[in-house]
Design a protein around this nucleic acid. Structure first.
Lengths: 198, 198
DNA sequence: GTCTATACTGAGATAGAC
DNA sequence: GTCTATCTCAGTATAGAC
């Protein structure tokens, strides 16, 4: 069947999102997808490459939307000063279109430290564009301090996408991703705007 | 030998810190520690309980120092307003005493989502004390929004303790933990101080 | 080209001898 | 307390059916 590959991807996405990458076995995936174990290695080569393809498929439209929103923010600012909020919105809000499963996958990956490998392949130029925009918005920061703040942002984002918000009364289950991300934009705007610490 | 247990703990801490929990096998640990495989299950019961004991041993002094610093901050503030910085410093700076290995372990745990289980056991009352202090510092926030911001903070902290800072020129390897954490305090102060988003 | 059956190595866990 | 042997299940590799 032509959609064996698709069934594997769908099932893997769901299980990775719920249980994490390491905790999900290929045998769980094939059982859920109703395919043979070796089909995974035929179509993808390995468990890690399956993950890689999953990320590529989901990340591409998100990154396109990120850059489109960033371009609009830059056009609006013109030659004048560039506020942080629209830059952060451009980076973060497009993730809201990811379903809960994909969101959890992305967050898990960031969190499990698997991202460094994938990041350069899939996000390299996007990150570069946003770093430039942030440099323009925040000229008071050294490159090192800006790098750290971007690092902090990725950490917050990771837990926001993946984790159970154990500090939020009610577990935050009723709060959809877009609202979480708006809350995060507010928080990060304040953080980025803080004076340099050295 | 009485210190079989200690040798296992030391080696596990080092390997978990460098490779993460999932990526470290018990057989790597016993080979590094020079003990038998079954010794781990005799002394700890399982791989996860080994981790649990590791966390307990390292977290207890950190949490004690956190509460001591928080008490000092509350005493300094008296009846007046309570600034955010000393509260965040009390929560974050005690982690600087953790060596790089333990720091990575802690960060990994936060990031791998293993913390929710461990958190309630080891950090429950500490978190409660700090939530109260933050509520006093930031009366303009709803309980939900404060919860989200604490969640964001844990995400940033996790990546700060564990991850390679890929956005920092030079990889940030020369920057010690205390300086990273000071940088994080500045950032988070700005974030927590941001106006409520709803 | 696609998929199945099966086997290989290494993981965590356990029972029982010493 | 410690060690050997063994169990199940993980990811992986390959030979061959259609």
């Amino acid at each position: 069947m032509i959609d064996t590959k698709q069934k594997i991807l769908d099932t893997a996405e769901r299980l990775f999102g719920h249980q994490g990458f390491d905790a999900t076995s290929l045998r769980q995936i094939i059982s859920g997808a109703g395919v043979n174990l070796a089909a995974i290695h035929y179509h993808f080569g390995s468990k890690e490459e399956l993950l890689d393809e999953l990320v590529t498929r989901k990340a591409t439209p998100v990154n396109d939307e990120r850059l489109a929103m960033l371009d609009r923010a830059l056009a609006m600012a013109g030659e004048g000063p560039l506020a942080i909020e629209p830059v952060l919105e451009a980076f973060l809000m497009p993730m809201a279109v990811l379903g809960p499963s994909t969101g959890r996958v992305m967050g898990r990956l960031l969190a499990e430290g698997l991202m460094p490998k994938l990041a350069k392949r899939h996000f390299g130029d996007v990150i570069q564009r946003f770093r430039s925009a942030l440099e323009r918005s925040l000229p008071h920061l050294t490159p090192e301090e800006l790098g750290w703040r971007m690092h902090f942002m990725m950490g917050s984002l990771a837990l926001t996408m993946s984790g159970q918000p154990i500090f939020v009364p009610g577990g935050g289950e009723g709060v959809d991703l877009a609202e979480r991300l708006r809350c995060l934009v507010t928080f990060l705007s304040g953080g980025f705007r803080a004076p340099g610490s050295r």
